[in-house]
Simulated scan of single mutants.
Amino acid sequence: MEISNGEQKSSSLHSKSLLSSGKKPCRKEISVATPYTSITITNELLDAYEDEYDGVVIDSQSLPLSANAFTTILQSSLSSWKLEGKKGVWLKILEKQADLVPVALKQGFSYHHAEPGYVMLTYWIPEEPCFLPSTATHQIGVGGFVINESKEVLVVKEKKCPLRCSGMWKLPTGLINKSEEIFSGVVREVKEETGIETAFLEVVAFRHAHQVAFDKSDLFFVCMLKPLTFKISIDESEIQDAKWMALEEFSNQPFQQEDKLLKNITGLCVARYQNKYQGFTAQRMMSKFDDRLTYLYHGYCM
């Protein structure tokens, strides 16, 4: 019997542009010739593209619906990528594909992170420590110090807060949304809670804390804002009340005086208002490192 090997495709990897074009996954083919016929055996691999860590990212849109089919194609793909010297494998499974998660876990994948609509799994191929980056470790919060020409500070009283600060008048605060800038996030939060339109001036200070929410770390940026409107309209779902409060009355609240962090934050904001302190402004610029437009927060050289 004479057997000849046909041409084998070297990889199932495609660029992101090929993924978006809707092309079918690559297949490795072996042609077997006999005196009577020629048979082509097709070994399908998952569609994927290369990542930044000498590994691959699997296209979630190419995953089979059947758990059995997924098991077979996943095993073949992992074997192929191992032979090619790939290291890490990223597998994003959409909510509608949730039945495939146990299959991937049985093949050695690990949870990386989850977001609404999907879970991300990873697989490390080499027999060496994994150097894939971990998931996000921080949440980002903002607080707006808004003071008018009458030296009154915009303050709110939240409906839900720890008992130790119940009834306290505080600055409007909140969390930054995904892909939102610090300066636009703080303007949005102030608007949502109080109805006051503002303009961002500077980042006055920031606090870095750990084990804050879901074992995550927290960055909290205190920003100086200029009021553009003055009529208050509260978000009744979150805020019990809001008002313009005399700066001295705000600073002299017992909780403000007893909490060293809050006392220092207020002192810095007042110093900025009096032009005795300079914070960080935001300047938009391009970086050749990653070809992205971004914002650099900085002070000014004297």
Rank of each mutant, 00 (worst) to 15 (best):
H112W: 03
H112D: 12
H113V: 03
H113T: 02
H113E: 12
A114V: 11
A114F: 02
A114I: 11
A114W: 00
A114P: 01
E115L: 15
E115A: 15
E115P: 02
P116Q: 08
P116G: 06
P116F: 03
G117V: 12
Y118P: 09
Y118Q: 15
V119K: 15
V119S: 12
L121Y: 04
L121K: 09
T122W: 01
T122P: 00
Y123K: 07
Y123G: 11
Y123D: 10
Y123E: 11
Y123M: 09
W124P: 01
W124S: 04
W124E: 11
W124L: 05
I125Q: 05
I125C: 06
E127C: 08
E127H: 07
E128S: 13
P129D: 13
P129R: 12
C130G: 00
C130I: 03
C130R: 07
F131P: 00
F131T: 11
F131N: 13
L132W: 00
L132Q: 05
L132E: 03
L132G: 00
P133A: 09
P133C: 10
S134P: 00
S134M: 00
T135V: 02
T135M: 06
T135D: 04
T135A: 08
T135I: 02
A136C: 05
A136P: 03
H138S: 11
H138W: 06
H138F: 06
Q139V: 15
I140L: 10
I140S: 13
I140R: 10
I140D: 15
G141E: 09
G141W: 01
G141T: 09
G141Y: 02
V142W: 02
V142K: 03
V142H: 01
G144C: 08
